[in-house]
């Protein structure tokens, strides 16, 4: 067997592209609904991250600024928080302000 490092290099670059081509041909790369959802998600992420780029804000504050529903804002904050894009600040009243990391 070749060394792990070399084995990796051999495979890199081509295997995944070949596989993806094959799978895209048979399964297709996402339904229109999924692609739309993904696009919408990205928009919401960007709006939220922009709103808290310089200053920590609570969910109602972000919602008011972005025009997004509070529930959606909170879900995305949760998502971004899990993936270390957003951090908590000290609680203000009943709400936690969030800031972009």
């Amino acid at each position: 067997m070749s060394e792990g490092e070399q084995q990796g290099d051999e495979r890199k670059g081509n295997y995944a592209i070949e596989q993806l081509k094959q799978v895209r041909a048979t399964r297709g790369a996402g339904t229109p609904a999924q692609i739309e959802r993904s696009k919408r998600g990205k928009e919401m992420q960007n709006l939220i991250l922009k709103a808290i780029a310089d200053e920590a804000k609570t969910v109602p504050e972000i919602a008011a600024e972005t025009g997004l529903p509070e529930q959606d804002v909170f879900w995305w904050i949760t998502a971004l928080r899990k993936y270390n894009r957003v951090q908590d600040e000290r609680k203000r009243g009943d709400f936690v302000p969030y800031r972009k990391k």
Partner: peptide
């Protein structure tokens, strides 16, 4: 947990 505390899913309020 997902929120790092007990909050309301509707708006993140404690």
């Amino acid at each position: 947990g997902p929120y790092g505390g007990v909050m309301r899913p509707s708006d993140g309020q404690t």
